[in-house]
Design a protein around this nucleic acid. Sequence first.
DNA 1: AGAGCATAACGTACAGTGTACGAAAATGCG
DNA 2: CGCATTTTCGTACACTGTACGTTATGCTCT
Lengths: 233, 233
Amino acid sequence: MTAEEIPEAALDRVPLSRERVLQSAVTIADGSGIAALTMRSLARALDVKPMSLYYYVANKGEILDAIIDMVFGEIDMPSTDGHWQSEMRRRASSVRQALQRHPWAIGLLESRSAPGPATLRHHDATLGVLRNAGLSVALTAHAYALLDSYIYGFALQEAALPFNGADTASEVTEPIVELFSAGDYPHLVEIAAEHVLQPGYDFGDEFDIGLNVILEALARWIPKDTGRGSPAA
Amino acid sequence: MTAEEIPEAALDRVPLSRERVLQSAVTIADGSGIAALTMRSLARALDVKPMSLYYYVANKGEILDAIIDMVFGEIDMPSTDGHWQSEMRRRASSVRQALQRHPWAIGLLESRSAPGPATLRHHDATLGVLRNAGLSVALTAHAYALLDSYIYGFALQEAALPFNGADTASEVTEPIVELFSAGDYPHLVEIAAEHVLQPGYDFGDEFDIGLNVILEALARWIPKDTGRGSPAA
DNA sequence: AGAGCATAACGTACAGTGTACGAAAATGCG
DNA sequence: CGCATTTTCGTACACTGTACGTTATGCTCT
């Protein structure tokens, strides 16, 4: 029993598992971007050799599909109990937050198109709320396409913003402002100077504004229960 | 002068140029996806060795930034001459078409955030139309965020669709339908059976529907010229 | 014509990627 | 204990972006 034979720190070594692999993949993507998620970096994070991952996962594509589904799993599912408008507002906010936590998911939506169970459950619940609100099948399809286009697109724009969070705005804008001074882009300059660069401005605040516009428009699609009408048929 | 010394087909060899490099990059990305765009594939397409590209381009990132700007360059710029609603409709359609031709651009929007001149020109022109329509600076910002979120989000969803174009829908849906029969996802099944899988259905048709909803809502933001009012102050 | 030089294209090399294939180790069970 | 199953790993291959230095090409000025 020489010292060499002791497999140092082989004790309390948490066994690998699909869950641990996927969870770790999300953590890496969140912290260092989706490009930093490689089979090798993932193995390193789990204190394991790269090829060990393939016992729990067929290939990297399967990891990508799985972590997208995990993101959908984090989203609050809307309920048919509450009012449809407040439920859709809650859902929209939850989707946006999930995509803020995991910005890489947005880019993945485009390339991968194999929805997982959490994704399907989520879509089903949302459709249920719209149908229950009184929308026809066709109007539900229209409404859902409109809502999700807006939410995804907003998240996409948010992710594309140069500054993330509480950095000073001038840090980013200064190099741009210089180019603008050339005289082109007068309207960009105007909106930057008078709006975007104002003290309290936060692009995220635009989200509720646009969402309200959409929800109010959708409300007009719901057939009104005239009150003196017949509840039957 | 042996035969070996003749650099076969050195005649009529088009010289390399930044334009040719970028144009070829777009062609590859369009035809084989953004993942197939590598320095080596690009060099092969141009009949040149990989390292020759670096004479015209600092690195691959610069290529990505440049081809995004080329996509924006393809978009029809709205004019302050026409009615703002029809101009915004024309622009929206043009953006969507450009993103359909170059689906890879959507994913690139998220990761790269160095807008090129064509991109800035385009944004400036669009802002100009909204301001000219009578919207305040703040309302213009709200309107633009809403419009672009919708357009980008719609393009994102379109790009994520499994079937591209005229393929048979059943080819894609059959494997899914099987899972659905399990009994979960009743609303997904409903909307699939009664709407999406109907003969003439095309997701792309949803675009104008949602766009109209937004444009009509925005119209209500424009201060009405009361007619008997005062044009001054 | 020839010298000199800027432009343009290239060869080689290195660290990093996903993963096929098969061997090794660890674990559980009789 | 022996053996089978589960889990982990070593090695290797084709491919990626690009740093660094070298070669070929074409133009200008004497």
